[in-house]
């Protein structure tokens, strides 16, 4: 872990350039056809999801293989409240967020006491059981059929009917999400989390309540996942259990590891690249999940730090110290 130095060149590199890049991608998307707009929209949604996941995995050093549970919660919450009860989408999104946070706190309290593979299996089971419930609870979720007729995002009478308008909102939500995660990371709370990632025992000795901070990070990640689920429901207008199944876990981890775990913009870059893959690999329609799995395994083996680990390839001014630090990291 390298500690962030706040200097003007750093803020240039960490804020201005990435935001400009995001806006450039948005601009390209807005001036191109519908399909690209959809793909970039998915990228933004997954960007939100992965930013949350990154918070829990990258900064806190924990692992959850069941974040899809909270995306499903958000997605189904928004879908049911808006399509069946005609709630305002924004209100439905906020209520789903709160619901996911509360459930994450209740489920996480016992679960996060576990470590290692026990934690991994418990969180994995969380995703499985949510998937199962979304299939079995027919009267609410319509099982495999899925829910359709979900209205697009909007406030009151103003609905974002066009996909391009929605994309602008999705991008803004994503940028706000990244901003919030950065603010949280650099706060007292975030420093405590990074201390836990470094060493739980040491963090404990410093007076950090490890269990409580872990739970808080888990709730934050769940809220992000829930927002992503809600956005997905409104963007596509249809959800089914498969959307939030185990392949979502693989997809999101591929994005996270490709971009680089524990970096600010890594999840966004990963989400963008992986979302554009189907366009590049059109011939591989049925092989998609296989390709994602292979890519993920390859990254895990050969470049566990993701693309950000390859940043040494890009020429940029470096002091000897930072080079040394990167070598040591």
């Amino acid at each position: 872990m390298t500690s962030p130095n706040i200097t003007s060149t750093d803020s240039m590199r960490h804020v201005v350039i990435p935001v400009a890049a995001v806006l450039a991608v948005l601009g390209i998307a807005l001036s191109s056809s519908g399909y690209v707009v959809t793909l970039i929209g998915f990228a933004a949604i997954y960007g939100v999801f992965c930013t949350g996941l990154n918070f829990f995995m990258g900064y806190t050093g924990q692992a959850s293989f069941g974040q899809n549970a909270f995306a499903a919660l958000g997605g189904y919450g928004s879908a049911i409240l808006t399509a069946n009860y005609y709630w305002d989408p924004v209100l439905a999104l906020l209520v789903s967020m709160v619901l996911s946070g509360v459930i994450a706190a209740a489920v996480g309290y016992p679960t996060l006491r576990l470590r290692g593979h026990y934690l991994a299996m418990a969180t994995f089971a969380l995703g499985l059981i949510t998937y199962e419930i979304s299939i079995e609870w027919n009267s609410l979720t319509q099982g495999y059929m899925g829910l359709s007729g979900i209205p697009p995002l909007g406030i009151g009478k103003y609905e974002l009917v066009s996909e391009k308008h929605q994309l602008v909102v999705l991008t803004l939500v994503m940028l706000v999400g990244v901003w919030v995660s950065v603010r949280l990371r650099d706060s007292r709370f975030g420093r405590a989390l990074r201390a836990i990632a470094g060493s739980e025992a040491a963090a404990n000795a410093l007076g950090i309540n490890v269990a409580r901070y872990k739970l808080a990070a888990f709730v934050v990640a769940a809220v992000y996942a829930s927002v992503a689920g809600s956005l997905f429901a409104h963007f596509v207008g249809f959800i089914s259990p498969e959307v939030f199944g185990a392949s979502m876990v693989i997809l999101s981890f591929t994005m996270l590891y490709l971009g680089g775990v524990g970096t600010t913009w890594g999840p966004i870059i990963g989400a963008l690249i992986v979302s554009l893959l189907p366009e590049v690999l059109r011939g591989l329609k049925e092989m998609q999940d296989v390709v994602y799995s292979v890519v993920l395994i390859a990254i895990l083996i050969f470049a566990p730090r993701g693309l950000s680990g390859l940043s040494v390839l890009f020429p940029r001014k470096q002091t000897g110290q930072t080079k040394q630090a990167e070598k040591n990291a």
Partner: peptide
Amino acid sequence: RGAALFAIILATIATQIM
């Protein structure tokens, strides 16, 4: 390569899906 525990678990889940 001395990969982290979670990375190996993730790789086996990916293997399963594949």
